[in-house]
């Protein structure tokens, strides 16, 4: 029971956030909506152009390329990186003790390093003939010693994906591991006694009972993938993050270039809206899909 004198207490605690949200969330969102209909040259001069920014983007081959590259990256994140994270989480979940804690710490550690720093590091690790990646590949499978990862259009995206695996496999593994610890062991045991193979147990018992976390991780991975920017910017520094034949150009790199380097904040906002729309639709589809499987 609250008395009248405390009615405004929560307001005081919330006031800073409310002011902040108005100035840095509500107003910019509103502004992004209008800005997308202007052509600007730096923040000072702008003129109304209606839907021209969007019309331009729909026929802009560079934007299509950026969108395609980013989508390919997102697909790799969901279908390569997350299964690897899950595999490691399963391996680690059935282990015990200090060794488990150490391995968890080690696999997570690259996530502490900012994407720019990782990009710089892998820029050197991926050099032909001397780079560590090239050398390890050569030793293991006898291929790749002289590959120009960052100079060959066909290898730029694999290089970005490889680097992103190093950063995020351990990060997502932490979530899966936490979820696995909440799975009811007796259910798995029952399935096993009924003669289910380990894969069947995982697919029909373990995975469904960690659905909530899986949806969370998939959605955040997609959102993160569509905002990929700093990693290719550093990896492909010699071409401003574009890479040979624009093979490493992402939508956010394009937004950065158009909006802040070239100064057309209007076109930049239009790109921002399209990215936001894609992310929103994909997240909704994902959440909807998980609800459908829940009902079934």
């Amino acid at each position: 029971m609250q008395d009248k004198s405390r009615r405004f207490t929560p307001l005081w605690f919330l006031l800073p956030y409310l002011v902040y949200a108005l100035v840095f969330t509500v107003y910019p969102m509103f502004n992004a909506g209008t800005l997308a209909f202007y052509q600007t040259n730096g923040p000072a001069s702008k003129s109304f152009v209606g839907f021209d920014n969007f019309r331009f983007l729909f026929s802009d081959e560079m934007f299509h390329k950026a969108l395609w590259n980013t989508t390919v990256f997102a697909l790799f994140s969901v279908f390569l990186q997350l299964p690897l994270s899950m595999g490691l989480a399963l391996l680690l979940n059935s282990s015990q003790g200090r060794a488990k804690a150490i391995v968890r710490l080690v696999l997570f550690s690259p996530n502490l390093v900012g994407q720019i720093f990782v990009g710089i590091l892998f820029y050197v690790l991926l050099t032909p003939r001397y780079g560590l990646v090239n050398r390890i590949l050569h030793e293991l499978v006898g291929w790749g010693l002289d590959e120009q990862w960052l100079g060959n259009p066909a290898l730029v995206m694999p290089a970005i994906v490889l680097t992103s695996l190093w950063i995020w496999v351990g990060f997502n593994m932490i979530y899966f591991l936490a979820a696995l610890q909440g799975v009811d062991k007796s259910l798995e045991e029952a399935a096993r006694i009924d003669g289910a193979t380990p894969f069947q147990v995982f697919w029909n018992v373990t995975l469904p009972s960690m659905r909530q976390v899986v949806v969370f991780v998939v959605v955040t991975s997609i959102i993160g993938s569509y905002q990929l920017f700093e990693l290719p910017l550093a990896l492909l520094a010699s071409s401003d993050g574009r890479g040979p034949d624009n093979a490493g150009l992402t939508v956010v790199t394009y937004l950065y270039e158009v909006g802040f380097n070239a100064g057309d904040l209007g076109l930049g906002s239009a790109i921002g809206w399209l990215v936001a729309l894609i992310i929103f639709v994909l997240s909704m589809l994902q959440i909807r899909a998980s609800r459908v499987t829940e009902d079934a």
Binding site: V252, L265, S269, G272, I279, S283
Partner: peptide
């Protein structure tokens, strides 16, 4: 929290 940060950079910069 669902709004991607990139959407807000241009208007915040202008502000």
């Amino acid at each position: 929290m669902m709004v991607p940060a990139v959407l807000l950079f241009a208007p915040i910069y202008e502000m």
